[in-house]
Design a protein around this nucleic acid. Structure first.
Lengths: 194, 194
DNA sequence: CGTCTATTTGAATGTACTCAAAAGCGGTGG
DNA sequence: CCACCGCTTTTGAGTACATTCAAATAGACG
């Protein structure tokens, strides 16, 4: 099926599946199209799915009581995203996940994923690698947040995720870096020193 | 073997092993005692091992060019720790891992872990869960670093990790929170507002 | 084309840092 | 096991980085 070409390629990076395993896997998948600003997960909802981005761009953010948004991650085509804590524990989400532009997504529910682990144990390996990489990314981000000033974090973001930079607003980048949009604007204009 | 009771219990939380699998697993393990301030991993060395803490307390930190330490994680008994990025890619470490007090550790090399995945595939599941939890922890930390002021992060740390608080210095806690020891001192004395 | 939101600019403020020095405490060696 | 030395913690003054609030400008979507 054309729809599942990209996700199967994504999986083939780490494990190889035979025809039957592919059939089993794809039988669990649900795909849908979401429009700009539509929600994949809305705060307080139970996070039922782990989501693969087939095309487009989405953003996950935390919204505090004061209404401040903190962007936790962006995801573009070929990336996986979910509110992992709430997905695993099947409890109300902390994060809101929203499409930045029109996107097509493929989803796998918690129950189906558990069944998949049993029916095709190779997926334990696949997600072991996916989560290992996710852990490494978050750990690098913590290191940078602790050791680098906002300006350097911004420049690293620009060079590391150029495809994301094109799709999202500066306000969203600022909230990913942990600074205000006003301060990001000053960094860009180089007026923040003195 | 008495030495491996704790680590086997740790593993039994997520997978069950038969006699033979236990024998295979333990044959890969190396244990040793390290004294206070001794290094498990020193910056720039290749990170050969993933380490399980059998007893004691260790700390992983990033040391920048200016000599500033940023504590990435603490680990106490029953926890796993490594410089994941450098362990997976077998390249020079970014982190230094050092014993905070006398500790006993159990280590598994990258090669042995890869063999273990092949000989006892259940370990794919085990580490899938370990890394999943590690990812969740780091993601929660990023959320807190972005959305909460230093004072709240400190109070959350106190209630979340009381057993760590007892073992480490305030300087080390400050470097985990991303603030200076001087500022942490003011937070404790409640003299930081105005 | 109009409206709404994002971005920029500026002034005033607050949060956290640097540097320096005093006080406290703990580990290590005698 | 005690005393000393060195590192940790505290305190304070001055400063820098980043925020808030407000208002003007620019851009983008419907």
């Amino acid at each position: 099926m054309k729809m599942y070409e990209l996700i199967l390629k994504n999986i083939a990076k780490h494990i190889s599946l035979d025809e039957q395993e592919i059939a089993c896997f794809t039988s669990f998948l649900k795909h849908r199209k979401i429009s700009r600003k539509e929600f994949i997960l809305k705060g307080e909802e139970i996070c039922k799915y782990i989501t693969f981005i087939h095309s487009g761009t989405v953003r996950a953010y935390y919204l505090d009581k004061a209404g401040k948004e903190s962007t936790i991650m962006f995801a573009v085509a070929d990336w996986w995203i979910t509110d992992m804590f709430c997905f695993i524990n099947q409890q109300p989400a902390m994060l809101t996940i929203e499409a930045v532009e029109e996107s097509t997504i493929i989803q796998l529910s918690k129950d189906d994923l558990e069944n998949l682990y049993i029916e095709v144990p190779k997926f334990e390996r696949f997600f072991r690698i996916i989560f290992q990489n996710a852990y490494i990314r978050e750990q690098l981000r913590v290191i940078q947040n602790l050791s680098l000033p906002a300006e350097e974090r911004y420049h690293i973001f620009l060079t590391k995720y150029p495809q994301i930079v094109r799709q999202v607003t500066q306000k969203q980048i600022a909230s990913y870096l942990g600074i205000t949009p006003e301060f990001l604007s000053m960094i860009r204009a180089n007026k923040h020193k003195k």
